[in-house]
Nucleic acid binder design. Structure first.
Lengths: 148, 148
DNA sequence: GTACTCCTTCAAGTAACTTGAGGTTCAAGG
DNA sequence: CCTTGAACCTCAAGTTACTTGAAGGAGTAC
C-alpha cells in the first residue's frame, strides 16, 4: 500500500534539519546514521524515521554534546532496558563542563576588556616596538597589560 | 665576552613558559619561532630572546588568539612603522567574539539546566524508549525537553 | 661504563567537519 | 526527445592546533 510514506532527497533532509548535505554523508560514514537506501540512480533517499533520528542528533549537537556522547544518547533513546536517568547524568556532567568553560570565558572577557581599556587610556599610538604592552607580554611574571 | 648569556634546553624553555616541548617544535615548524640554534650534538638551544618571544606567544594564545593572529601580533610588536593602535583593534574584535561566545554559552547553560531539572522533576526513571525527552528531541519544532 | 633522563626526527592521530575535483542523475522547459 | 541546470555521487585532501608513538641518539651522574 505504501500510502503516506514520504521520501526525501538528501538536500530536502538537510533543509528540514539544518544539517548540511556533506555532514549528513559524513554522519553516515561514521555510523551515526545507518546507510541510506538508494534510488534506482544511486542517490540517497530518506523517510520520516531518518528525519527523526537526524533531528535528534542535531539537537544533541546543538546542546554541545560530542559525537561519541551522541552515540550513547542514541543508544539510550532506543534501548528498552536502560534507564533514562543515565541520560540525565550525562547531561549533568556536560552542564558542569559548560559552567567551567563559562567561568574561563568570563575571566578572559575581563582580561581582554582591561587590555583594550588600558590601550585606549594610556597609549598615545605609535610604533609597536615602543609599546609597553609588548614588553609586558614578553615578561613571564606579569599578566599582559597595555601601554601602562 | 658572552658573560651572562643564559642558554636553555627545549625542556627548560618548556617549563619556563608552560608550553610543551612538542608544541615548541611545532611552533618552529610552522614558523612562529625561528629555527633554533643547535648544540654540537644537534640538540636545540635557546636564549633569553627566545624565552621572551615564546612567552609573548603563550600570552597571546592564553588570550584566545589564533595562530594567524599571533603572527600578526608578533609582527606588530616588532615593527617600527606600524601603529600599536592596530593591536588594540585586533583585541577589540577578539573581545567582541568572546562576548558573542559567552552569550551562546549562557543560553546553552540555561537550556541544559532546564533539561536536567525537568528530568529530575518529571521523570520516574525507566526505559529510554518510553522517555518523553527522546520523543521531544526527535521532533523538530520544539526545543529539547525531558520527560515532561 | 652504564644507567637514566632528555633529546632527535618522522609519521600518524585527534574532532568534526569542509572543500574541491571530476563526474552522474533528475526535473523542467522547449 | 533533448537540453540545461541544479542537485547528486565518490574520493581525497584540507582545516586547527596540537598530541602521541616509534625508534634511536645525546648528555649527565655515579
Amino acid at each position: 500500500m505504501n500510502l503516506h510514506v514520504r521520501v526525501f532527497t538528501i538536500g530536502t533532509l538537510a533543509k528540514a534539519t539544518g544539517v548540511t548535505t556533506p555532514t549528513i554523508r559524513y554522519y553516515e560514514e561514521i555510523g551515526l546514521l545507518p546507510p541510506a537506501s538508494r534510488t534506482a540512480g544511486g542517490q540517497r533517499s530518506y523517510d520520516d524515521n531518518d528525519l527523526g533520528r537526524l533531528t535528534f542528533i542535531k539537537q544533541c549537537r546543538d546542546f554541545g554534546f560530542g559525537i561519541d556522547q551522541v552515540r550513547v544518547l542514541l543508544d539510550l533513546s532506543i534501548s528498552t532496558d536502560r534507564d533514562c536517568v543515565e541520560t540525565r547524568d550525562i547531561a549533568q556532567v556536560h552542564l558542569d563542563d559548560v559552567r567551567q568553560k563559562l567561568a574561563e570565558l568570563r575571566l578572559l572577557e575581563r582580561r581582554l576588556e582591561s587590555f583594550v581599556t588600558r590601550c585606549n587610556v594610556a597609549c598615545a599610538g605609535g610604533p609597536g616596538q615602543d609599546c609597553v604592552i609588548f614588553k609586558d607580554m614578553a615578561a613571564p611574571t606579569k599578566a599582559g597589560g597595555c601601554c601602562g
